[in-house]
Design a protein around this nucleic acid. Sequence first.
DNA 1: GCCGTTTTCGGCCCGACTGTTTTCAGTCG
Length: 569
Amino acid sequence: MKNQLVANILYQIADLLDLKGEIFFKTRAYRMAAQSIEVLEEDIEDLVKKDRLQEIPGVGEGLAKKIKELVETGKLNYFEHLKKEIPEGLIKLLNIPGLGPKKVAAIYKNLKITTLKELQHAAQEGKLRHLDGFGEITEQNIIRGIQLLEKTSGRALLNVAYSDGFNYLKYLEKCKDIEKVDIAGSLRRMKETIGDVDILASSNNPDNVMDCFVTFSEVQQILSKGPTKSSVLLKDNIQVDLRVVEPKSYGAALQYFTGSKEHNVTLRGYAIKKGYKLNEYGLFDKNTEKFIAGKTEEEIYRKIGFTYIEPELRENRGEFYAAKNKNLPKLVSYNEVIGDFHVHSIWSDGNDSIEELANYAKKIGYSFIGITDHSQSLKIANGLSEDRVDKKIQEIVKLNKKFSDFKIFCGTECDIKTDGTLDYNDKILKKFDFVYIGIHSGFKMDKNKMTDRIIKGMDNENVNFLAHPTGRLIGKRDPYEVDIEKIIDAAKETDTLIEINAFPDRLDLDDYHAKLAKEKKIKFVLGTDSHNLNHLLFMKFGIAIARRGWLEKKDVLNTYKLKEIEKML
DNA sequence: GCCGTTTTCGGCCCGACTGTTTTCAGTCG
């Protein structure tokens, strides 16, 4: 957490320096250093103690000194001075689409505006249009930008962007003059939240393609339109960008627009070292401008000296090092999961009967389903008493006789109480085919207590899986305070599998910690946390997080053969 | 502010679109 704190302050300094009008390269240096610290596996306090800060990529003499002061004293004089010079509120104004540091600085300098509300009023009263470089359109865009910001808070959940993106894709595939079309950007990388949806197409007649793009029925507003790039706002306030390139550049463009930004900056650095220049039109010889590659992503990565890197790995978290050494993981694929371990039925707070769930699971190609209703003390979710557990088990035994080549497991999502004991005694726990444990109350606990509570739960010999390990709800509830590394170590010791919860609001464990856990040789279980039939389709988002965490087939229990799973449980 | 067997100084990724301008600055990705 300390690392994140330091990174956040560096990001804020970068914003403040931008507002002050500092050169781009200086503010970028702060952001690059912040990004390195964010993904650093070592504790920054340790690096300070050992005088090793300058080993962090992007940290030199100057930043090392500042970070040292910050970590040792909890304060940074330079930062405090900056804040006095430039009101912090201005940083929020940078989030308004179309407003960058130069315009915000002009607004502050001339009108002394420091908050969203003040800016909104000034725009509505027509006070901005007289400033240099501003006009009526800018003013209107600012008003709209503020409204949008208030409505969306910026980013959409993966499932929402996913269905918008693939609906659009289906529509575009029918447009004439489109040769190829694909999702790019953070949606292609399957990031947990999506800022806007990027789509890439190839065509020799881009004007027709753009006309088709902006006339999609879900479009609320056209934000910009040109022959190579257009942007629209959908009715649900998600922005979609379309880029159109010539077919020979398609691979280069797909690589470029898939990102991440950090991945691309690094890749371009490697290209330059090899005497190339890489942009969205292709890989070129730096001196002669001769076209080297561009039709496919594979050939671009190969020419620069790497094996192909899957989109989910393109976050500059070590993928280049691994690709250079032909050491990349063979990621678990989207069709290797044969069942879902985390499903609620009508017995607790789900909407559908076990039989309906099983039939649907079979229909979508699964070999098993694990029904995990809540335990007794979770009254609000209709948790099961011992008596009802017995009845539910009988129903499942009966149902299993009806199915061939398909198995219903009777599991439970057993509550971990505040003292770390479990909501069922051992006698009851032994009745289940498998046992998930999870936190459902008492979220506001101190970090050590919460960590001990969960570890005590995992210590029980009847426990198989730990559900949604941090309890976060993306955009709604922060993770509870927990030492996730200790949890991972305890999972290893107690043979507990850690869940990657595929429900789009959760995606918990997240990709970053999944990678960390995999490095410690932990195994995972995927569960959708379904409360109705349609939720079963969320599995792809869990698989995406697994892939982003570098997991392979062998790391994920849901991909094993049914016989092997039965034996392991 | 960082970085370096082409550099300890002078680079740092770079192209597209908008809006405000009459040739370009600002913003974005």
